[in-house]
Amino acid sequence: MKDIDARGLACPEPVLRTKAALQEERPDRVRVLVDNAPSQQNVQRFLESQGFQTALEQAGADYVVIGQSDSMSSVQSQPAVETRGDAKKIMVMCATDRFGFGDDELGLKLMLNFLRTLKEMGDELWRLVFVNNGVKLTIEGSDVLEDLKAYESAGLKILVCGTCLDHFKLLEKKRVGETTNMLDIVTAMQLADQVINL
């Protein structure tokens, strides 16, 4: 296991150090410690681009990105959705924390019910993406937080818009999902067989 402590370093330095470590030592496992969300996202994305499966852990205010080369056994909490055979890939994008328009209270109830019922999609549910006001469903105190955590534990990849979290000043309050950027969202849209927008 190669350990890289990149705390206190701004982008692109954590990625450059990770890249250098991979080139020089070719480790099968790497653990990168960073202290900001952009570095976490970039290191994770870089490792995945290099054929590593990644997992993310939170250590207080720090992030621990763990990468394991695809040639080795699976990383802890490896997303099961990536070994999904021929199942259709459905991406659900929630751009709001309310389902429909008209009555906010009803809209919230419907949204909670919708998210809880999504499990009926089974293996076809491939990505759950939260943008704009939808990111508020992923933070502490959200009524569906435990449901979303259960989805994530079951292997569903949940993406949460980092720009949106930052806009609402909720970066520190997110409790589920992977903070992501627009490029990842667009790429997911491109790869999905079906995109459902709310």
Binding site: A10, C11, P12, P38, S39, N42, R45, F46, S49, L183
Partner: peptide
Amino acid sequence: TEAVFRSYDGAAGECICCKALFE
């Protein structure tokens, strides 16, 4: 070249090295 990218952060409106590193 990192310094050059940083000099364009203001025009871009965000940190290019943070948000567009893989583009």
